[in-house]
Amino acid sequence: MSTTTGELAPPERAAPADRHEPGRNRAEARWLLWPPLAFFVVALGVPLAALVIRALDNETGDNSFAAALTMPVFLDSLARTVVMALVVTALTVLLGTVYATAVAVSPGWLKFLLVAALLLSLWTSIMVRTFGWMLLELPRGAIFWLGDLLGLMDEPLGVYQTALAMYPAMVAVMLPFAVLPIASALAAIDREQLNAAAVFGSGPLLTFRAVIRPAITPAMISGGVLVFVMALGFYVTPLLLGGPTNMTVSGIISGQLRTAGRPDLGAAMSILLVGGTIAIYLVADRLFKVSEKWG
């Protein structure tokens, strides 16, 4: 090295003009990336800008954001939505982990049954699935019928249009989004690590803590983040099952447009909802690389 120290020093190199593949066509990236990016500007940027304009365009002249943030109905629904999303996320991730594990360890025909249930849920529309829950939860619906048949229930079921009615349905709607990433994480666990754990005398609980849980935690988090942000925007299911006393933010927003005739308030609330949701998504994405797990 001693003879060459003179050469090690010179950082006064000209700025590297083109250090990747020579002649690499910049047109290539342009042709591929620009159409979707332009689409995002039109389909995402323009509506968001229109939201801002609409929120500021207020006949009465006061600030729609301030008005929205002082509306008790909105604040209540906001709190309710966040709590609901948190509960749904926790239940979904928990159940999703068990479900994904069950898929992985089931014998053939049970595995088929579990996967078929998952696909059925993915392939049928949310409307249809929500109808199913309505029919189950109606005062004299299917659950009551079964309870009655078994002699467990003699009063009609009082769960319909309550907060309790929404949870099973929402968990069922969201479950596939948690199961799929966790199942693929489980499939990707290094089998040698599992074998090593077994050889060194580790029981199921220790193996789970030492090998399985660390391997699936990223998938649980990215699935959970996605479920959470999607749950924040829940509209149909709470509306049909939770009834008017359990309005989510989405329900309130649509009410501002469809019945209250205050599109400016609706727009202001929309911006708050979008802003909050996207902020949570971005932070989670920075922290946990959620989108990398999905893309």
């Binding site: 190199r13 250090r19 020579p22």
Partner: peptide, 25 residues
């Protein structure tokens, strides 16, 4: 091969500089 650009220097085939040529040429 032309898959990596260079900061300086030359690559020549039969005396012709090719460092600016893309790999496919």
């Amino acid at each position: 091969a032309g898959l990596q650009g260079i900061d300086r220097g030359h690559v020549a085939f039969d005396g012709t500089n090719v460092e600016k040529r893309p790999p496919r040429k």
